[in-house]
Design a binder for these strands. Structure first.
Lengths: 124, 124
DNA sequence: ACCTTGTTTTGAGATCTGTCAAGGTAGAGG
DNA sequence: CCTCTACCTTGACAGATCTCAAAACAAGGT
């Protein structure tokens, strides 16, 4: 399968950006980044993301069994994470394996870094 | 005014947590953290957050004028950010000033850090 | 008191989201 | 070919969300 043909986030557009606390994000940048935060804004997806990012890879069966939710629901949440560009999936035989997209994940974290000389203290 | 009596995020509960890529978040932790990411998951709020975090403080009038949206809409988004525990507001005379909650903001960033020895590479 | 400006609250409508049941697709193994 | 298991897609529905207009609230100036 190797999903990446969907409306996935343009990583190039994110790679450029300094922390959001460094200077105001413009509308275009916000439109690219917000969906990634949004994807993490659901408790189930956040746990899924955490489970996926904590290991090299993990199969859907192991993810599904960790929740009290239907298969389709987990599948839906995984699709959201995929389309946000945060994870990648690959079918190998019977099972589908998910893996974190390290680049995107790290970039997202970088956006929340507090600048070395935080703007919020320069003027004070 | 000095809003903090609302259903605000319990910072203690977050302060404890290692990066989500270090080990799977449990349901309780996810329930605390997800609303913060959710708050950043809207392009308008993400820009508001960025504008607020980029300066020591900023008044609502300056925030509102940066968008093509009604006052009530901006006010609503600011309320979401407040209730997520990400910003703080204070009325001084005519204007209301917003300021980032540095603790919460930094904690959120810490959750996205990639562990020194990423679990995703230990086993591979 | 009254008006003016800045901000929030309330109410309402259109859209989006989380969830499940039912049905569909893909591969493995008879 | 048939069936079984794993996973995804579709369709549907309750509930949440984004937005604005209208109304309320707060502080300052007249």
């Amino acid at each position: 399968m190797s999903k990446q043909a969907l409306p996935v986030v343009d990583l190039q557009a994110v790679a450029c950006c300094p922390p959001i606390a460094a200077r105001p994000l413009d509308a275009d940048q916000a439109a690219v980044v917000a969906p990634m935060f949004k994807a993490l804004g659901d408790p189930v997806r956040l746990r899924l993301m955490s489970m996926i990012a904590s290991v090299p890879e993990i199969c859907v069966c192991d993810l599904t069994s960790a929740f009290d939710l239907s298969g389709p629901t987990i599948s839906h949440h995984l699709k959201v994470l995929r389309e946000a560009g945060l994870v990648d999936s690959e079918r190998r035989g019977t099972w589908v394996w998910y893996r974190v997209r390290a680049e995107a994940f790290r970039q997202l974290g970088a956006l929340l870094e507090v600048p070395a000389t935080p703007a919020a203290e320069v003027v004070v």
